[in-house]
Every structure is written in C-alpha cells, then in structure tokens.
C-alpha cells in the first residue's frame, strides 16, 4: 500500500465515524453551513442599506 492509499484508508475510516457527528445546533452540518453563508448575505445587505440610509 503506498502513501496516498494508506492515507485514503485512514481518512475513509475517519469519515464514516464523522457521519455520526452532528452539530449542537440546526441538526445537520449542511444547515449550519447554509446558516453561516446566509448570515454573511444578510450582513452585506444590512451594511449596504445602512450606508444608503444614512448617506
């Protein structure tokens, strides 16, 4: 087994365990990642509106 195969095997074992892990909020990682991106979008919109409102 060469280096990358050994590494892949180690990571695959790890990934299967990973599927069992859940975030403490929002139940799935996909939902949490979407939440972080959505927060960024909202912040940019708020900053833009803030700038326009007071300028």
């Amino acid at each position: 087994m060469n280096g990358s195969e050994s590494l892949n095997s180690q990571l695959e074992t790890g990934n299967s365990k990973l599927l069992e892990e859940h975030p403490p909020f929002l139940k799935t990682w996909h939902k949490l990642y979407s939440f972080v991106v959505a927060e960024l979008v909202v912040l940019i919109i708020v900053f833009y509106a803030f700038m326009k409102l007071f300028s």
Partner: peptide, 22 residues
C-alpha cells in the same frame, strides 16, 4: 472580511476532518 465566513465553511468541510483523523 467578507470572504472569511466562506473560508471558515470550506475549512470546516475539508481541513478539519483530515487534520483530526490523522
């Protein structure tokens, strides 16, 4: 800092599991 949250998501998906498992 606008790109930072996106980077955090990418690293959470990719780097964190690899570093941890090794």
């Amino acid at each position: 800092y606008f790109g930072l949250p996106l980077a955090m998501v990418i690293l959470a998906v990719t780097a964190v599991p690899i570093f941890h498992k090794l």
